[in-house]
Design a protein around this nucleic acid. Structure first.
Length: 753
DNA sequence: GCAAGGTC
């Protein structure tokens, strides 16, 4: 039997479909769908993985943060543990029968590693199995058939390169995370994380904030003249100095200006505005940002569209359509339906020459629309994203847009003014892709020597602005430029910074805790706070992939470096603890106590519950309640009534909750309580009963709303029959074992508590 | 409980 292993289920299915010419059967092996058919040379079985099916970790004995020092992780053993039990089991079962294995994972470094991970599992059971590798960069009949006619060998060096990345990320990340968390005394859910990608990203945000703080705001003035031509058409021109730094200068100038203006020079020209390049993930996220989508939601929606078959694979670096894609055929799909007129116009062209971006890779094609959707099939947000992908796809085949521009110079009492105008004369690609088009800036027809009247002189007060904070879209772009993260992880890294309460708001604003962590790292572990760690790793991985250096040497050198970082860290542990704690303290300040004027801050009672308390305690006993769970983030928005900072509560996997001013919130809660009391006095006795009953009833899993027989059986299969078991197990693990969405499971777990 | 990278 010939076993073919793809990176994901859908890829296995589509490849099997192509190679069997549609004559395949679906067979479930250990709960995993596989695709099989009889070929001339025997039976072929296709299985899809779910990306990595194993991960690296430390042995269990290193798990206790308090007992095992962070430094010990540097030279600790690194073991491989499986994360996809069902798939691993299916691989073993099929691998035992196989005489030949073909690795058909994605054509990139991680794909090579994912393939080798699967192969190693198979070889444990079947050491002598024959194996090979196929390469394709789009799942089209031509590419797939070519690939299987030209099989090549697995590149173990390339997989080693990927493996070295895994080891370094784990060793550096886990050890420094543990060290910083222990030093700050932040254990449990509130730990402070450190990583090769997240820490330099956080440093970008902190550095930007520091730049803003250091920025000196300076006033300046701009001078405008509102003119009127002979036909009474009005327009505005600006003094060529643009910015005046002294008010008296501009005042003096204004006092000398007369009522007449003369056109000194008119230059007209045409400007070509090139069509946009195909979407890769970063380009897509940037475009979606300008429509108001966050990167995480844009990717979530793209994933949903991909699963439904409406768009191609959304995680790609590639900005060049591979030659094997039949582009005309792709456009023909849209010759009916919503985009008919656009498709027809493109199809009328003799040749279709798409634009190409700078990045050409082998992983996947750029993102393109894969099938025709009706508006009624999608929700509003999905439609917006889908429409954008379709329009962008079309725009990449369209002509440039053509603008007519005018630059004119004016003389008012020997002072020079100027104006520019632009008018779109040929929409070109902008007809297909009308998003964020610049507006026409119209100027009346004019020629040199024309005389005009000055209707009014205007001086505008302005101030220089500090550099803007990073919006999520811009941050993703910057991360890509610096080589931080990958197409599939950048938006997740940003989500991570939010859920660790390192940042809040959009554009992103760092907390004082983030300042403290970044400063500690920059001082004592600068390697991991800079993007250069990634570029250096990339260079090392290239050398491993090319066989110039063994993986072990790179790991050895890196561990030595990390050990010397730890020497520094341990020498300065007290300093680090002090500065981290100072940062954490600052993040807890809510404002000033209205009763005694002392500082109000987030505190913990002896029992462990959280509240806002006054530093003047015990003389002053003012306090406000806080929600029991989630990160409390103090924002910089001030309540005008109470002078307290607004609060946001962040829980991983949930939308942030803007609680607002804690005092206002408390007042509202009190009012609601009172109304309830007044309205339900008599009903109270009745209300108590059901809750008692509920206490007795919620013993069985099926008592939870949304869990029926089928779901209960799924849980039973993995050994969960009691409510306590459901609640105490890790939601993520349960999601993997049962194939039920993690959010559902969390919802059920929370409904019990 | 720790990272980053796949995929869902």
């Amino acid at each position: 039997m010939h076993l073919i292993v793809a990176e994901k289920h859908i890829a296995a299915k589509r490849i099997a479909n192509i190679l069997s010419a549609g004559k395949l059967s679906q067979v479930r092996v250990n709960g995993v769908d596989t695709y099989q058919f009889e070929a001339e040379d025997g039976k072929k079985v296709f299985i899809g993985l779910s990306g990595h099916i194993v991960k690296l970790d430390f042995p269990r004995s290193y798990n206790n943060w308090q007992k095992v020092e962070a430094k010990e992780l540097v030279d600790a053993d690194v073991i491989t543990v499986s994360t996809e039990a069902r798939i691993v089991a299916a691989l073993k079962k099929l691998g035992k029968e196989a005489t030949r294995v073909t690795i058909a994972t994605d054509y990139d470094r991680e794909g090579e590693l994912i393939g080798v991970e699967a192969l190693q599992i198979i070889r444990e059971i079947n050491p002598n199995v024959q194996f090979d590798r196929v390469h394709y960069s789009a799942i089209t009949p031509k590419e797939i058939i070519d690939a299987f006619e030209n099989v090549s060998n697995i590149d173990f060096n390339l997989a080693d390169a990927g493996h070295s990345r895994q080891v370094l990320d784990l060793v550096w990340g886990a050890s420094l995370t543990r060290f910083i968390s222990l030093a700050a005394g932040r254990l449990g859910k509130l730990f402070l994380s450190v990583g090769r990608v997240q820490s330099p990203t956080l440093a970008l945000i902190v550095d930007k904030e520091k730049e803003r703080e250091a920025f000196e705001i300076k006033p300046y003035w701009e001078l405008y003249a509102h003119l009127k031509d002979r036909k009474d058409i009005e327009f505005t021109v600006q003094h060529v100095n643009r910015r005046f730094w002294e008010k008296h200068e501009v005042d003096k100038l204004v006092s000398n200006l007369g009522k007449n203006a003369i056109i000194k020079e008119v230059v007209t020209s045409t400007k070509k505005d090139k069509p946009p390049i195909p979407f890769n993930t970063t380009e897509f996220i940037t475009a979606a940002s300008s429509l108001g989508f966050t990167p995480a939601s844009a990717m979530r929606i793209a994933e949903a569209l991909y699963i439904q078959g409406f768009i191609s694979y959304p995680r790609t670096d590639n900005t060049v359509y591979p030659a094997t894609l039949d582009l005309r055929e792709m456009i023909e799909i849209f010759a009916k339906g919503t985009f008919k007129e656009y498709a027809e116009k493109l199809l009328a062209k003799e040749t279709l020459e798409p634009t190409r971006g700078k990045k050409e890779t082998t992983d996947h094609p750029p993102i393109y629309p894969a099938s025709l959707a009706k508006k009624s099939e999608l929700n509003e947000q999905e439609w917006k994203i889908y429409e954008m992908v379709v329009r962008r796809f079309f725009a990449t085949f369209a002509e440039p847009a053509i603008w007519e521009t005018i630059k004119a110079k004016f003389d008012v009492s020997s002072e020079e003014f100027s104006a520019t105008g632009a008018r779109l004369v040929e929409a070109g690609w902008r007809w297909y892709y009308p998003y964020n088009a610049p507006e026409d800036r119209l100027l009346p027809a004019m020629k040199e020597g024309d005389e005009l009247t000055v209707r009014e002189i205007e001086v505008q007060d302005k101030e220089t602005q500090p550099p803007g904070r990073y919006g999520q879209g811009r941050l993703i772009r910057t991360m890509e430029e610096l080589g931080l993260g990958t197409k599939a992880t950048r938006h997740e890294i940003i989500s991570k910074l939010y859920s660790r309460a390192y940042v809040h708001g959009n554009p992103l604003q760092p907390t004082k805790t983030a300042y403290a962590v970044v400063e500690a790292l920059e001082k004592y572990a600068p390697t991991i706070s800079k993007p250069e760690m990634t570029s250096r790793l990339e260079a090392d991985m290239d050398r491993i992939a090319e066989g110039q250096i063994p993986e072990e040497d790179v790991l050895q050198e890196s561990r030595e470096m990390l050990n010397s970082v730890f020497n520094d860290l341990e020498k300065n542990k007290d300093n680090i603890t002090e500065s981290l704690r100072a940062g954490l303290r600052e993040d807890k300040v809510i404002g000033t106590c209205s009763k005694c004027g002392s500082v109000l801050m987030v505190m913990r009672s002896k029992k462990g519950s959280r509240f806002i308390g006054c530093k003047g305690y015990p003389e002053c006993s003012f306090s406000l309640p806080l929600p029991r769970s989630g990160h409390v983030v103090v924002t910089d928005k001030l309540c005008e009534e109470h002078g307290l900072y607004h609060i946001r509560v962040i829980t991983e996997g949930k939308r942030p909750w803007n609680l607002g001013c804690p005092h206002c919130n408390f007042n509202e809660w009190q009012r609601a309580q009172q109304e309830k009391e007044e309205g339900t006095q008599e009903q109270k006795a009745v209300d108590d009963k059901p809750s008692e009953e509920q206490g007795k009833r919620t013993k069985k899993i099926t008592d939870i709303k949304g869990i029926g027989k089928v779901t209960a059986e799924k849980f039973d299969n993995i050994g969960i029959s009691k409510l306590e078991d459901l609640v105490s197990r890790d939601a993520e693990e349960l999601a993997k074992l049962t194939n039920i969405s993690i959010n559902k499971i969390r919802e059920w777990q929370e409904s019990v508590v």
